[in-house]
């Protein structure tokens, strides 16, 4: 049988994740999961809020694209099914400790520099902090992977969820040209 794009293409959504809800599995995009305020599986609500706050400051649009749900979902996957950029970057699985320690260091460093919670930073303060963390560990950043590395990883995650979907390609006027659209085969067993 000759395989062409036509008979490979599937209808369906873009980035979809599977959730076990009320005894059944539903498929939602990270953005839809956020809209429904579904419970997180691995992250605490506080960690999720920090991911969305910092991720959206680095890649505008990441929060509404469901960054925290995307990361949370992947953290609960088996390593061989995990889709996080971290699997390329010599960080041993499981990855939840990577995010937990980095977010704690982020909160601690913000507190030390500004005596504030991260959510209370002004835009100027957040920009200055991100500029600093790109280059070296800010004061108070401890017991965590290097700040520039965490910046790189979270930025990559945020770009994935914000720009890696079919809708996002369309918004950039890039034709997706899928052989096999991601919607039907994206799900990871919950």
């Amino acid at each position: 049988m000759k395989i062409t794009r036509r008979n490979f293409s599937l209808t369906g959504g873009a980035l979809s994740l599977s959730f076990l809800l009320n005894g059944g599995i539903i498929h939602l995009s990270p953005a839809q999961a956020k809209e429904r305020a579904l419970p997180y599986q691995t992250l605490t609500p506080g960690q999720a809020a920090l991911i969305d706050l910092l991720g959206d400051a680095i890649v505008p649009g990441a929060k509404s694209a469901g960054l925290s749900y995307y990361i949370d979902h992947q953290l609960s996957a088996e390593f061989q099914d995990n889709l996080l950029i971290l699997r390329y970057l010599r960080v041993p699985a499981p990855f939840d400790g990577f995010y937990a320690s980095s977010l704690a260091a982020f909160e601690s460093a913000i507190s030390q520099k500004y005596n504030k919670k991260p959510r209370d930073l002004t835009e100027t303060e957040m920009t200055a902090f991100i500029t600093a963390m790109m280059q070296s560990n800010p004061d108070g950043w401890q017991h965590a992977p290097p700040a520039p590395f965490f910046y790189f990883v979270l930025r990559s995650d945020a770009i994935d969820v914000t720009y890696g979907t079919m809708d996002a390609f369309d918004s950039l006027d890039i034709p997706y040209m899928a052989h096999i659209e991601p919607g039907h085969t994206w799900e990871v067993n919950p």
Binding site: A57, I58, V59, P60, G61, I85, Y88, T127, I130, M134, F152, R155, S156, I159, D160, Y163, G164, A168, F169, L172, I174
Partner: peptide, 26 residues
């Protein structure tokens, strides 16, 4: 290239963030 991933457009210029990144991607 695609917009995302290590070898993608966004990954090519990791020093950009915020509004500058949005403009760059477009």
């Amino acid at each position: 290239v695609k917009p995302n991933d290590l070898l993608g457009i966004g990954g090519s210029n990791p020093g950009l963030f915020g509004a500058k990144l949005t403009d760059f991607m477009k």
